[in-house]
């Protein structure tokens, strides 16, 4: 199938970018370290890291396995969000370079197909990396400790979904500017903005006690992909999150699907807008 050829090609191009190779290499080192360092205690009641038994209730009330998995998941998710942008902000511009655009656009595929297969390919490349790391860690904990933590796998899957939604913003910017550098910069800017919007009640709200200003922040929060919200909730799938604890006793710790639902809507709208824009441009 034509679209499949394009997706496979895009995955290949993304995977060959230096930063993803770096992620993959570092990921493997971590996997190796975890495989060697983490063991079950002889009586099977607790786990031992580098020879030190971890007492069951010392970690802010979180079980040791959950605690370690949450740390691993958070760091791998942050790393992939960070490195991933470098790897794939250039995927769409590289298709639109002078001399290359003509080749792709003269093939019998619609522009929407071309654009979406680039976006899907990028997401698959990132997704393969995330899932590879997660499955390896999951297997280690299952085989060595006997904990088959399905929430951890599901959480990795949700990080992939979060990335796909976040990537809509990067894809749109890189399509319009045709510049990898701008897409990276605006991608990060959006990421920080999304973080600030997530906790706007505690931060941005206090900058100006104007109602219109606050409602505007709310609107922006709901019409853009909720990156921080999605990542936080993905972590909650693993277990009681110690960071939620720190927010205070009333902090909600249950997984909520809503950030994913809102982000699905806004990412779909952004992808649709980008396809529409692309189908009208001269190259």
């Amino acid at each position: 199938m034509k679209i499949l050829s394009m997706i496979i090609f895009s995955v290949r191009e993304a995977i060959l970018r230096g930063t993803l190779i770096f992620y993959f290499a570092v990921g493997n080192l971590i996997i190796l370290f975890v495989a060697l360092a983490v063991n079950a205690s002889p009586d099977g009641s607790s786990i031992v890291v580098l020879g030190n038994p971890i007492p069951a209730k010392s970690l802010m009330g979180v079980s040791p396995v959950d605690f370690i998995l949450i740390q691993l998941q958070r760091s791998s998710a942050s790393a992939i969000m960070f490195l991933g942008i470098f790897a794939i902000a250039g995927i769409i511009p590289s298709m639109l370079e002078k001399g290359t655009a003509e080749l792709f656009l003269s093939k019998p595929l619609s522009r929407t197909t071309l654009f979406l297969s680039r976006a899907i390919g990028s997401t698959v490349a990132i997704g393969l990396n995330i899932l590879y790391f997660a499955v390896a860690i999951w297997l280690i904990f299952g085989v060595k400790i006997g904990v088959w933590h399905w929430g951890f796998l599901l959480s990795a899957l949700m990080v992939v979904v979060a990335f796909a939604f976040y990537y809509s913003v990067v894809a749109l910017v890189s399509l319009v500017t045709r510049s990898q550098a701008l897409a990276i910069m605006l991608g990060f800017l959006f990421w920080f903005l999304a973080g600030a919007l997530e906790s706007r009640q505690a931060g941005l709200y206090n900058l100006w006690s104007n109602d219109i200003y606050r409602r505007t922040l709310d609107v922006i929060y709901y019409v853009t992909p909720q990156v921080s919200g999605m990542l936080q909730n993905a972590t909650r799938l693993i277990g009681m999150n110690p960071y939620d604890r720190m927010l205070g006793p009333q902090a909600v710790s249950d997984f909520s699907i809503m950030p994913f639902v809102f982000s699905l809507l806004s990412a779909s709208a952004i992808y649709a807008l980008a396809s529409w824009y692309f189908s009208r441009q001269d190259y």
């Binding site: 090609f9 191009e13 590289s94 370079e97 002078k98 001399g99 290359t100 003509e102 080749l103 003269s106 093939k107 019998p108 595929l109 619609s110």
Partner: peptide, 18 residues
Amino acid sequence: AIHIRKKSGYLPENHRYP
């Protein structure tokens, strides 16, 4: 029409390949 591109070949000027 996609049909046009299906039956055409194109060698662009200054073409660049991955």
